[in-house]
Design a protein around this nucleic acid. Sequence first.
RNA 1: GCGCCUAUAGCUCAAUGGAUAGAGUAAUAGUCUUCGGAACUAUUGAUGAGGGUUCGAUUCCCCCUAGGCGCACCA
Length: 542
Amino acid sequence: MIKSDLLKWLQENKIEGKIEHPSVSKFGDYAVRTGKPLENLSENSIVEKIEFMAGFSNIWLKEKVLVDQAKNILSSKYNEELKEENIGKKMMVEFAHPNTHKELHIGHMRTLITGEALARLFETTGATAFRANYQGDIGPHVAKAIWGVQKMLKQENQTLTDWETKANSEKAHFLGKAYALGCADYDADNKDEIDKINHNLYAKDPDIMDIYKITRKWSLDYYNDFYARFYTTYDKLFFESEITEDGKKIVEANIGKLFEKGDEGAIIFDGEKYGLHKRVFITGAGTVTYEGKEMGLAYVQKAQFEYDKNIHVVGNEQSGYFKVVLKAMSLLDPWFEGRQYHLPMGMVTFADRKMSSRTGDIVTVDSILDETTKAILPLLKNEEMDKKYTAEVITIGAVKFSVLKSDPTQNTIFDVKKSVDLNGNSGPYLQYTYARCQSVIEKSQKLETRNEKLEMWNEEELGLLRYFYQFSEKIVEAAERYNPAILAEYLLNFSRKYNEFYGKCRIIGEPEEERRVFLTQVTAKILKDGLNILGIKTVEKM
RNA sequence: GCGCCUAUAGCUCAAUGGAUAGAGUAAUAGUCUUCGGAACUAUUGAUGAGGGUUCGAUUCCCCCUAGGCGCACCA
């Protein structure tokens, strides 16, 4: 990358200080706060000139360098350079983790979209990414849902078989309603009966296993549709029910060492010794809590993939939980020390309502996607047969981008009406710019090539050239900071730059046609690759 | 009560201690027989309050206010 070359050169000349992009382009491509003018610099093949002003040494790159960088992008050579950043690293990304027997809501969608983008960022920079999903398929929430299902079937005089042929989303919605009913009944008067279902689930009571297995599969089928729509394929689905015993054994084996007996026979980890708080790992009744299960999960995951880093993409309300559990994990086995990272995802709240899966009052992912598609369809110019595919690509692009354009750790307010912008700071704006580039490229190919030299650029053309080489830098930065928004933001600014250029400079039929088509090709390449890293597809026409 | 997080334009979001705090959206005014108007141009508009550190603070520290989230047998 250009930045590393520059950095190396500055070091050779013993110049200290951070290198940055100036806030305004008239101050050059890079700037270093040197305090005084630079003197006696060695020869350099990439720097055109250096000017000192207001404490900054402003650095301009040679045009040839800018053009070479653009060519690197077009030929995908930049990709090889990027791979050297994290070469050989193994990154586990654990994300989405919806519990079975519940409907998906916007929070799941946010972590799914973010986790997938992170995995792609790691892969682009040379790491191996392992996509993991940890799903709660056992416990009180399942018992409540099963209670609800039984009650609703009885009321409607139906059996599970009657539901078998229905669509996955309908079954999921049915489970969502059943769960809400179970919650209401639990709070009302049926606590003991629902607790008994929970107990029987752990005991694998044959009477309940049928309905459990069938409804569990409904959930998983529904989730698979959802993952596929968002272009995510997991390397491994981990299930709570499968690691419960492991967790229990590990915790019990370490009583007196790491864990201790607390009140009422519970096995706890005393985080207070480390400035944290106490948490229960096995309850007084002998059931393993989420904390205890996490110990089992840790080893199962390690056995699957010996990661350098495991990024837990999980809501920020779990920050306290993770601090304690990750501490316990590193004390249990030093191997885990420094390898576990909780990325605290911001909460999604609503402008106009409270959302709760307990009451069944949720905005489902399906409804958001449907609404978006409805807004997009009338705008499409495609042939009828391509419309469905195009509408889907743009729907997913719009929803994904609206999530990815802001810092994942920040809370956001979600307004269903305004959520999906189709212009301005939006996925469709980027997809539109790409389609526009394709249209220009297609038109120009009908003309003869003029072999025009790539020099003597005008202001608008240079403005674009100065954006191209930053693409790689932004990818690296986004991967390092676990923040896809850095890349998303760049793509937006860059797209605006291209559209500005497009508005001011005609391309087809002008003397500068060849080089302007070249700029258009590079732009298209950056948009396609950049969006792909974010997990968003492009279409040639829309 | 203790702890963590947040507060930037009417709204949704940016800004590794540095140059004139940037975008989108909304509003207003334009571009318009178009190389794709899902676009472009222009105008209006902001750092919650008060201290401190610093040559320099949206950024770091203290305090206050407002909001969100956690804090032992749920996941």
